[in-house]
Each structure stands twice: as C-alpha cells, then as structure tokens.
Write a protein that binds this DNA or RNA. Sequence first.
DNA 1: CTGTTAGCGCGTTCAA
DNA 2: TTGAACGCGCTAACAG
Lengths: 332, 332
Amino acid sequence: MAEVAARAGVSTMTVSRALKSDGLVSQETRQRILDVVDELGYVLDLSAGALSSKRTGFVAALVPSINNSNFSDTVRGITESVEVHGLQVLLGYTDYDIEKEERLVRAMLSRRPDGMIVTGGRHTEKARRMLASAGIPVVETWDLPSEPIDNVVGFSNAEAARALVHRLYEKGYRRIAFVGGTTNRDTRGADRGCGYQRAVEELGLPAGRTISFGKPPISMEQGAQAIVHLVERWPDVDAAVCVSDLSAFGAIMECHRRGWAVPGRIAIAGFGDFEISHCSWPRITTVAVDCRAIGAEAGRVVLRAIESARGARSSGSERIVVPFQVIERDST
Amino acid sequence: MAEVAARAGVSTMTVSRALKSDGLVSQETRQRILDVVDELGYVLDLSAGALSSKRTGFVAALVPSINNSNFSDTVRGITESVEVHGLQVLLGYTDYDIEKEERLVRAMLSRRPDGMIVTGGRHTEKARRMLASAGIPVVETWDLPSEPIDNVVGFSNAEAARALVHRLYEKGYRRIAFVGGTTNRDTRGADRGCGYQRAVEELGLPAGRTISFGKPPISMEQGAQAIVHLVERWPDVDAAVCVSDLSAFGAIMECHRRGWAVPGRIAIAGFGDFEISHCSWPRITTVAVDCRAIGAEAGRVVLRAIESARGARSSGSERIVVPFQVIERDST
DNA sequence: CTGTTAGCGCGTTCAA
DNA sequence: TTGAACGCGCTAACAG
C-alpha cells in the first residue's frame, strides 16, 4: 500500500480510503489511485485491516453437513444475504457431532468473526459458554431452542413431524412407524422422532414403532435396510415416516424391489422436500421448509445485530419462526 | 494475551509459545499458562498472529457448487487433509461461473491464504494472472488443463465420457445421444460432451445428437425434460449419456412415466456415481471418480508446496492424474 | 478532502 | 527456557 501511495503521490491513508466504497476521496484522486492499484496488481490485505479496524468481515457458519441440499441451501441463503454487505462466510461442518462443533466454535472464534450462525439448539456446555461470551451476535437455526443463546431462526421439527403424522391419520393410516438414525447425534432427526411419538400417542395409535438405523446422515441405503426391518418387526404397518426424503427414497426403492406397492402395501413419507421427492416415482409426500430463507433470515439477523450492537448486544435478540408445510404426494 | 501473561507471571512471548504445540516452554510454565487461559476463556487471535507470522493458516478452496455431492466430497477431502496440519479451509462456490470465480479469487486473495485450490482449468485471464502472481501454491482440480497455472490433480472428463460411449458401443448400442447443460458455463460438462462427440465419430456412429438443456447445475427436472426432447427429435435413439447421474435419474423417471422401458426402449447412463445411481431402480450405469481422493490429494499437494516453497515455488509443480472407472449397471 | 500519529494483537528475532 | 524490542499492513482518530 505504501508503494501504491508513493506512485499516486498520496498517503497510505488516502489509498485506504479510495479502496473502500464509502471513503471520502475526490473522484480524480481515487481514479489515480485505482489506476496504480490495477497497474501494480495490488490486493488489499484484509487481515491487516481487520486487526486495525477490529472487524474481520467474517461471518462464521456451522452446519451439520455440506453434503445435504437442505443445509447447502441454507448456506446459500446466508452467503447471499451477507456478501452484499461485504461480509465473507467462514464455513464449517460438524458431521452432526456436537463435540466436533465445539472444536469448530473455538477454531472459528480464533478468527474473530463479526457474527456466528450455528445449526440447532443443542451444543456442548463449553460451546454454549464460548458463544455466549464471545461478544458477537449468534444465531441458532433449524431449531427452536427453549433456552436460546441469542437469536433464533428456525422451526419446530417435532411439530412438523407431528403434523405429518396427523395428515397420514386423516388419510386413514392407523399403524404408522418412524424411521430415523441413531438419535443421540442428529438432534433434528431426534426431534422429528419425538413429534411422531407425540402424535401417535394423542391419536391413540400403536406407539413406539421406531426403527433406528445407522448414524446420520442417514442415507438412501440405510432407508432401504430400515424398511425391511420395519416390515419384518411389525408386519401390519401401513405407513412409515422417514427422517428425510433420502431415506424415504431408499425405502421406496427397496419396496419396489420386493414387490411391495407404495402406497398400496405401505405408505412412505419423507422430510425436507429435496428435489428427489418430486422427481422420483411415486413422488414422495414430505414436509417442506424454505431452507434458503432460513439462511437469508439468519444472515439478515446477524447483520442487523452487527450493525446495531457492535459488541454491546443492545438491540435485543430476535426469535423468528419460519413456516413448514406438509406436501402430500403419491407415496401416501 | 497480556492479561494472561500478567496473571501467569510471564511475558506475552511465553504465552504465545505455550499456545503453540512446538513452543519451547517448560512443562510447569505451560501448564500454569493453560490454566489461566482456561480460567479467563481466552481465545488466541489468529488474525493478529497471521499478520505477524505472515502465515494466515487459510487454504482457499473454490468449487462450482456446494450442493453437489461430488464437489462436497472433494471439499471433505481437502478439509480432512489440511486440518490435521492446523490449516483452515476458506470455501467459496462459483455457481459454475468463471466471472464469479474471478471475483472470488480476488476476495480470497485479500485474505492472504497460504494456498489455493480451484476447480477446473478454465478461468478468466485476470483470474489466471492473479493466481499466478499471488506467490502462493495453486492447485487446479477436476480437470487436466493443457496449460496449468501450477499444480494439477484431476482427470480428463472427455476421456471418461469417451470410455463410457465405447462401453455402450460394445453392448450393442449404435444411436447414442448426449444430454447436457448449456455448455459455455460448466466446462467439465462441456468436456464430457466433447468426449462423447469424439467417441461417436471414431466409432462411425451418427454424431451431433446432443441436447442442451438449461444452465448448470443440470437438475433431475431438466433431465426429464431433455429426454423427451431427445426422443422426439431422434426417435431411433437407443442410448443416452447424461452429463450427471442426477439428470440421468430425472430422465429415467420420465421414461417410466411414459412407459418407455429403460434400458429396453432406451438405455441411459449418468456420470459421477452419486448415491442415487446405485440406489434407484434401475441402478444407473455411470462413471465413478474418487472425489474425496481428489480433494485429499489436492490438500496434500498444496501442503507440500506451502512447506517447501514458502513463497518461492521452488519445488516444481505436480500433475496428478486420478483414475476414473466406468461402472455398468442396470440402466444400460 | 487529505495527512499525521498511533496502535490493533500477535510472532520474529535477538539477547540473556 | 525466557524476555524485550520491534514491526507485520492496515485503519481510527484527529488535525488541518
């Protein structure tokens, strides 16, 4: 920057101002500086700027997995909403593991992000403490924690699953099961299982028909295996709610292979409204959430908090509940 | 850090040393410092450390899309291989757009990453120049550019598609078509189209049977639409090579809906060995590449270059060709 | 509109 | 094994 300044015949401060859009610099001076910048191929060093200005321009975002279009849509939403304000997303994935999340929280915090977006309301005690005392706005997404750290943008996975079971009941299904992963890791999956449980209990249906299979992310393959176990264990089952569309798809394919009509022999529903749920045959009944909007809202909330608080968190935390929608298709 | 030092009765330099694993500090001093660190909830500021040490500990990685399990597997591979060396991945996605890639390259470079991994060999002239003159190791992946910027870890998409067409020929198919996106954006998709073209020409088959449909990422929906156009335009077609498994799946589902037997009426192959290709029915013939290994290798290469060169790029560039494999399944 | 001074929070380098 | 001085490259704050 000193070299640019020298060649343009100004001080480094003027170069610094010319390089920010809001810098108060005369048009001609700025143009002269930009020409030199271009000529020299100079690239501003933001890490030095961050040290000086105490703003890194980073928003850390933690999701369970990037190989899941629900979460990658949320990341897109976050990115789109913050990048227009000049912020850069620092992405991490936890593999559905809150221990790994804790390590990532620490790693992210040492980069001094201006704000942080995490998935879900369940964290290790240490992670909670670090987030709460980091002095930056925090947004928890994809969940509705009863004791939020700060801001929340999410929905109740339990309520969504419950609504789905009720819809199946209305369609006449009476022996409804749930297929999910081992529940101590994927808390959103576990919440859906709880919602299923509550629904069958309040409807007076046989309860506890839950197949847990493998650790998350539950795959198509696992859905296929689970549906077989399910039918073996409770042969009278007439409907299965799967923790995600991917496992639902795997289950449906396995049913085809075995000549079990879907939904004739057994109805199968998913969760997430992945592309496959409306492209496969039969099209899959599911619960849709606007994943991108979750991200966009989370980005907006964190931006607002960064702008208003600048460390003091004065503006009060937001709690935004996004809607979900049961979408009935051919598989039920 | 000053406060930690004061409380531990040492200088900040000793705290700094205690916080790196390789710092030469006595056991008791270190333990005393770590206790204070824990008590205070102190988190090291890496951005300040980066300024001082001239190493940010970032590896920038640019992929076309995170909502594609091929690329997110590559990102996993990169992350796993560099994080054990204490480096942090700074991820960006280009949406298959080299103009956006150029903007991202600039943005990443202003964070002063220690190395950079990009997808593909095609970039804007400016992006190439920035990457070449950044003074950091660069790895191009998922492609085999004829004029690489620096290091390469990839394979020939054209050769892979060509091999697939040859395999279809051996199975007896003679009127083979290609289904892809509009080709000026997804260069790997375009390369696959070129490989198809070369194969049908050298086999003396009717050539130029290419349906381009929509801009990438090509979706299941687009595959469904494309297959209809294809059959309308060339009713005698007996096989279709799709640019990815997702479009192949969409095409197969559409064939089912219309009562066109796959592979009886038309054989359909994909690319990428996505989970859906072996979970759907019929299982989809495809080309498999070890996406995670591409990422792991790219990470290894960039690490080696960071270690050996420290800016001088003295160690020579690597060019690693990863294998691909045609996997024949039920859809052909 | 522009320049000067000071310092962000660390690690490097040297000396003890 | 530890500490002191210094500076990384930039921007805040103030003065002009």
